[in-house]
Design a protein around this nucleic acid. Sequence first.
DNA 1: ATAGGTTTTGTCAAGCTTTTGTACAT
DNA 2: ATGTACAAAAGCTTGACAAAACCTAT
Lengths: 324, 324, 324
Amino acid sequence: MGLFDRLRTDALYNTGAVVQRTGVPADTFRAWERRYGLPAPARTLGNQRLYSDRDIATIDWLRDQTRAGLSISQAVRQFRAADAVDPLPPTATPAERDNVVEGGADTRMSGFLDEVVRAMIDYDAARASRAVEEALALLPIEDVCLHLLQPALYEIGHRWARGEVGISTEHFASAFVIRKLGALFNLSQPEQGRGPIVATCLEGEMHEVGLLLTCLFLSRRGFSILYLGPNLPLDDLVKTLRRVRPPLVLLSASTPPAAVQLAAASRDLKAHFSTPLSPYVPVIGYGGYVFVQHPDLRDEVDGIFLGRDADEAAARIDEVLAAA
Amino acid sequence: MGLFDRLRTDALYNTGAVVQRTGVPADTFRAWERRYGLPAPARTLGNQRLYSDRDIATIDWLRDQTRAGLSISQAVRQFRAADAVDPLPPTATPAERDNVVEGGADTRMSGFLDEVVRAMIDYDAARASRAVEEALALLPIEDVCLHLLQPALYEIGHRWARGEVGISTEHFASAFVIRKLGALFNLSQPEQGRGPIVATCLEGEMHEVGLLLTCLFLSRRGFSILYLGPNLPLDDLVKTLRRVRPPLVLLSASTPPAAVQLAAASRDLKAHFSTPLSPYVPVIGYGGYVFVQHPDLRDEVDGIFLGRDADEAAARIDEVLAAA
Amino acid sequence: MGLFDRLRTDALYNTGAVVQRTGVPADTFRAWERRYGLPAPARTLGNQRLYSDRDIATIDWLRDQTRAGLSISQAVRQFRAADAVDPLPPTATPAERDNVVEGGADTRMSGFLDEVVRAMIDYDAARASRAVEEALALLPIEDVCLHLLQPALYEIGHRWARGEVGISTEHFASAFVIRKLGALFNLSQPEQGRGPIVATCLEGEMHEVGLLLTCLFLSRRGFSILYLGPNLPLDDLVKTLRRVRPPLVLLSASTPPAAVQLAAASRDLKAHFSTPLSPYVPVIGYGGYVFVQHPDLRDEVDGIFLGRDADEAAARIDEVLAAA
DNA sequence: ATAGGTTTTGTCAAGCTTTTGTACAT
DNA sequence: ATGTACAAAAGCTTGACAAAACCTAT
């Protein structure tokens, strides 16, 4: 059904096609849009309207109601009321869903996990991709990330540590997972949302999977993310913060040296912005496995520790920014 | 079915025959090709167009859609969306196509390019994404990569060099483009194909856009790619080669030190595999802008230089592996 | 169906009758024959064309296709494509055809020739291949071999002699042509036929293009060929002859020493088989450019000189074995 | 609903090359 | 019958334009 939906939203119609399909004059439904914001078609770069199948269905419905004697304003009100009962993207918050599904999901997921790990060891991107797609069709994105993609990467990492597979396998798996996460991230970028949140790894730090995962989850929770990727010099981060003024900055480190650098950066940032002249000070959130292994490193950082995994981090950020 | 297909694709029609069969004036579908790259007929040595049965079916479909009120641009868009799910090889080879479309597509592309660059400077991933999606729906993937994504990155790079934007913008743009390329790469991984080809940047080298682009194009040409991403130690590459035995290894470098390291690695690899006992020696293909700026560096490398851009590289590799 | 075909090809019409039956002006289908070798009518002793029912059907078909908007070149191309799957013997014998087509075909061929030579100099096998395929779709195999592949090789040879290209270009071109000829040879191996004929170059002789060409033509004339390739020791040839007992052995030499060796071998073979106990003695046919340059060398050989080129050789062999 | 703007798209023209039917001279 | 020649036909590219479609605002 996901695929079907994808296709249907890809089918876009120009004004003329909508007129042929609905029998409603263009001026009419353009007036509806102007006065009531319904339908709400997308636009091309040339500013032409692009109607989806759903928009056409909406116009059909409005036309039928007016024919049945309803005024357009009443029809729109009824449409909105019906829509509130059966909202289109029924996105429960991920946290709620995880609690419910988790027990069952792990069982169901293990089959996919085996397949993905085996496919990765065989360098078979197509097979791994097929397994992931299948999992995505059955389970929410968050579950697939937390209980399939990340465990697969951990499993490969462990096997590498035990000398069972080479680092190439780890690279391949990592590149694969990053590509997948990137694709999911692209899909879930909200039009506008809370935030924005700036996310990056500082200069020298290359391990971006955890950060990308957190960003994906935040994006799914409706946050707008400004993802700057790995290896960013501190100076440039400062400039960006000054321009964008995000309420939160996310930093991630995976090795002790990177953690130390992150800690120094956090203090520099705070010092930099905490002047009488500057009313703006960004909150700093940080994470990374190194801070789980060496909790004492957290003491050096001037910011909020986001927890042991991306899921926890996203929940923590949600809280922090809801409070603010 | 293979034989049938062979026959059908061998049936080629000149422009006049297509006019008789579809009822669409030649000027019209030539304009479609000029503006949207669809259909994409092959050519004779005398530069006359040769349409396949598939091309004729395409024109028929487009004609029917326009009769149903769709504008030609939206018809093309829907055709491409359906085609992405169940792609068929174009009549013309990619190299031929690129030459043809460039002129017309560039004009059409410039609007997208402006929008993407502006969106990037505003750190507006959603807006940039929308523009890229629109371009992808209207124009072939190859064109979008070469004439939109890469130029956008160059433009941002130039503005950074001129001090007009910060390095964060460059990072943001780079992360965005890599995510997009990764997504396209995922879409076009063929079930089985020629190859496999192993692609990586060696330890220390982080600039993977060019390599990823080349891999995407190769993937679209039907090659199976084993993408190991940036920062891979040589030892691990050797182990992988020994296990996978790809006919070709792709290496990329962007800085002089990385180029020197690549050169040393190429010689090591050759020395490693060129023993009387080893019947297998992988071909090494390499590229990266540093080899264009400093051609003398090529002399140090024991491998095939793949040219100045991803398109050239993909064509070159196609040749090399066809000859083998 | 075999009987039917036999009868149909026996019915012969002169040019005027064909005009009456097809409604196509004589000039027109003679131009088709001149430019594309289709149809290929037989001839009277006075050199008048004699069209079979099949030729008339061919002309009818071509006329219908052009009425349907196809250009004559594409109609021929489609005819040949269908014919490759289910080939029928042409009315005229290859020798007759070759003489007829030469003049006109050369003009048409020169475009292909330029392209192939240029592609070879660029080491672009794919481009060269494309040009050859196109020529094969438009013209009979014999023409393509004699007026495209062989001239291309000569042209490259001359340029090498003039120092315009390196010896690697010559090697590349030679390997390319041998591959192409080999592929055509594979395609045209008849199920069963006259023969078999054993063909080889003796130890030390590596120049196999002429021999391969002759074998291809013989194969197209319905002979079954046992191609042993270059560099065969005499002993092994003897063993093979004893086992296969072919009515004819083909030998080829390109240099004076190879010619001397060939002469000695011919005498040895004759001596070997001409014993009272042996009822079987193979006929020896030989050729190669060295025997054209130094006709006196022919005196040393105990066999039949096959003429100055592959075409002549094939015709000569046809005669010899028809008489036997 | 109309007016006055922009964008999109089918069509055409000019100037060129390639292809192809027909005519002519040998 | 053959080979050459030639002119008409068909194709190609670039650039342009005007009608159609679409947009906003009155």
